[in-house]
Nucleic acid binder design. Structure first.
Lengths: 134, 134
DNA sequence: TCTAAAAAGACAATTTTTATCTTTTTATTG
DNA sequence: CAATAAAAAGATAAAAATTGTCTTTTTAGA
């Protein structure tokens, strides 16, 4: 359980690669995909999601491509993962208590909340700089 | 991401219910399923998995049913979850580094390892007694 | 021997994941 | 302005996992 999907894995690979490039170097999606060994069309979708929330900036047309949206030490692994996988929710009832009819007296609830916090803390403590640095 | 499946949810509900019963009270699967609102056939599969690893003991035939395999304070939530969902593996490469061709120089690897440890620690610190007690 | 109950196995519907392909938009350049 | 380059968007489809159900078998008790 708790497994990152391929999408998440690809997302990390792709953006870490981008973070490792010389700053302001515009990278073609096709080049990134080839370098990190991910289906280009799939990576395109992922980078579109990144782009929407500003994790990367994109340029169309000749000479276009992608660059990081912020300095690599200002982007956390948590942001990257949540961008493509959605929020980290170990249990439905963590986000919608109403779904849990056991609600009021459910003792499991706070446990999942703790799990969620722990995971987020770890991922939030890691930046793309940490992952791409020499 | 990191979402518990329904199977995991059902598993927890079922075994917590069992843990809340008077000790040595043999419970029918059909009764448990009704009480925690889970499809009986599905819960049956789950309890079979519990039974195989000794989390519950089963008795067949008339007067048969299920009881906890150990005292409720000796069964952790981690065991329950892993029984039905498999090991907690945030990323494939955590378990099979060979799959990660980036292997040696993969900086993400230890991060997932930390996530895994944190999650396990939380779940290991909670027993069925904690979850079923008044 | 009949009945009660779990175990085991085969099967099926649904949902999610993992893509691919085509068309559209935007930008550059000759 | 026309041609080209590249990302954005949308539709579709294959594969895998999830979420079940149904039938048969085994085991135990009355």
């Amino acid at each position: 359980m708790m497994e990152l999907t391929r999408k998440g894995e690809y997302a990390i690979r792709g953006i870490v690669y981008l973070a490792a490039q010389p700053e302001d170097r515009v990278c073609l999606l096709s080049d990134i995909a080839a370098a990190v060994d991910v289906p280009p069309t799939f990576l395109a979708k992922i980078f579109q999601q990144f782009s929407k929330i500003g994790l990367v900036k994109s340029y169309r047309g000749t000479g276009g491509g992608f660059v990081l949206g912020r300095a690599s030490d200002k982007i956390t692994l948590l942001e990257v993962v949540e961008a493509v996988e959605g929020q980290i929710i170990p249990n439905r009832c963590v986000v919608t208590p109403s779904e849990c009819s056991r609600d009021v007296f459910c003792k499991v609830h706070p446990v999942w909340k703790r799990v969620q916090i722990q995971v987020r803390d770890v991922l939030e403590g890691v930046t793309l700089k940490d992952l791409s640095g020499a």
